[in-house]
């Protein structure tokens, strides 16, 4: 794999009435050809600005930003317009042209790119078929549901055969079921058409569903970057941990811990569960050591076809024996004593 998007110390400063705001602050990262790259952050983290720097809707204040071989920070407006034909974009509020039909929306980028009428019509039909809306070609966007509107948005974004698709909070206005449908469609865009996708979101579920790697943004800076599995299972930044806790409720929070402490005697530990960790075998030996255990909290799920999660245990016994058991657990996984 080779990089299709390279950011090198990219910074974007906006002039606000209250003074300059560093919306994107020295970010360096690369997106590989053909991958689905997630960018996650809370609102105001700079992720929407970041994605607009890639297609030049916003100009970087400093840094280098190479997209498909060209440094977009040095391109003229005219060159950028040509560049954008190879970069599709979809939006949270879909941003369809209300005055044009579904087919007219999809045809717009083709007119921009100067496709002849006959080829344009053929391409529009092909795309509407791909997103499952061929029968709605002559309807106006207002007649469609949110999920259908986003499908039109995707068809429009893909019309001129871009190599990159930028998705800016593309499921945030949709219900969970429709979100999954749209994400499945994006998956198909990635695997069947080979389009590199950059997904901007504040929902970790979206990243978990389709991204290969993820960048976590906070206050315009890169807080963490890695495979989705690594960031999920071993979040290093505090902001990443907060995101993980929103989708995975396997670790007891402070209030849960208070309750656990009231209801269970002995010591409480949380042990990570990953593929290949042999927690059961170790726990099977607990009685030999004279330790009684109870599973009091936890959850195990799968992520990118691998198991991950954690179990919280209440351990009862004399201190040396419990210590011994914890030592054995630590030989197979990460264990955190919460009391």
């Amino acid at each position: 794999m080779s990089p299709i998007i390279e950011l090198d110390e990219v910074t974007k400063v906006f002039d606000a009435p209250s003074g300059p705001v560093r919306a994107v602050d020295g970010i360096s990262l690369t997106v590989e050809h053909g991958e689905v790259f997630g960018v996650i952050g809370y609102s105001g983290a700079g992720k929407s600005t970041l994605v607009r720097l890639i297609n030049g809707l916003e100009r970087a204040t400093s840094g280098r930003l190479v997209v498909d071989g060209d440094d977009v920070t040095t391109l003229s407006e005219r060159e950028l317009e040509l560049k954008r034909r190879h970069i599709g974009m979809i939006f949270q509020q879909f941003n369809l042209f209300a005055s044009r039909t579904v087919a007219g929306n999809v045809a717009f980028p083709l007119k921009v790119a100067g496709w002849p009428r006959a080829e344009r019509d053929r391409r529009v039909a092909e795309l509407l078929d791909f997103v499952g809306l061929l029968s709605r070609a002559h309807d106006h966007p207002s007649q469609l549901s949110g999920g259908q509107k986003q499908r039109v948005g995707i068809a429009r974004a893909l019309a001129a055969r871009p190599s990159i698709l930028l998705a800016d909070e593309c499921t945030s206005a949709l219900d969970p079921q429709t979100t999954q449908d749209v994400l499945r469609l994006l998956r198909k865009v990635n695997t069947e058409l080979g389009v590199t996708i950059v997904v901007i979101t504040h929902e970790l579920d979206v990243v978990r569903s389709i991204a290969d790697r993820v960048a976590v943004l906070e206050h315009g800076r890169l807080a963490e970057l890695g495979t989705v599995f690594d960031v999920f299972t071993k979040p290093r930044a505090e902001v990443s941990r907060r995101f993980v806790s929103t989708v995975l409720h396997d670790r007891p929070r402070a209030a849960d811990l208070d309750r656990l402490r009231r209801h269970h005697e002995g010591r409480i530990v949380t042990a990570d569960v990953l593929d290949g960790s042999t927690l059961g075998a170790v726990l099977g030996s607990a009685s030999e050591l004279g330790v009684a255990f109870e599973i009091v909290y936890g959850g195990i799920g799968t992520l990118q076809d691998r198991s991950f999660g954690s179990l919280t245990l209440a351990l009862q016994g004399d201190d040396p024996s419990v210590d011994h058991l914890i030592t054995r657990l630590r030989q197979v996984t990460t264990v955190e004593e919460v009391r």
Partner: peptide, 25 residues
């Protein structure tokens, strides 16, 4: 403004947006 941004994102020139999109919208 999102509609105009969407048009710009397709690579449409400002002239095209002014002449073919603003009035119909």
């Amino acid at each position: 403004p999102g509609v105009i941004e969407a048009a710009r994102a397709t690579g449409a020139t400002r002239w095209r947006i002014i002449t073919t999109l603003l009035v119909p919208e």
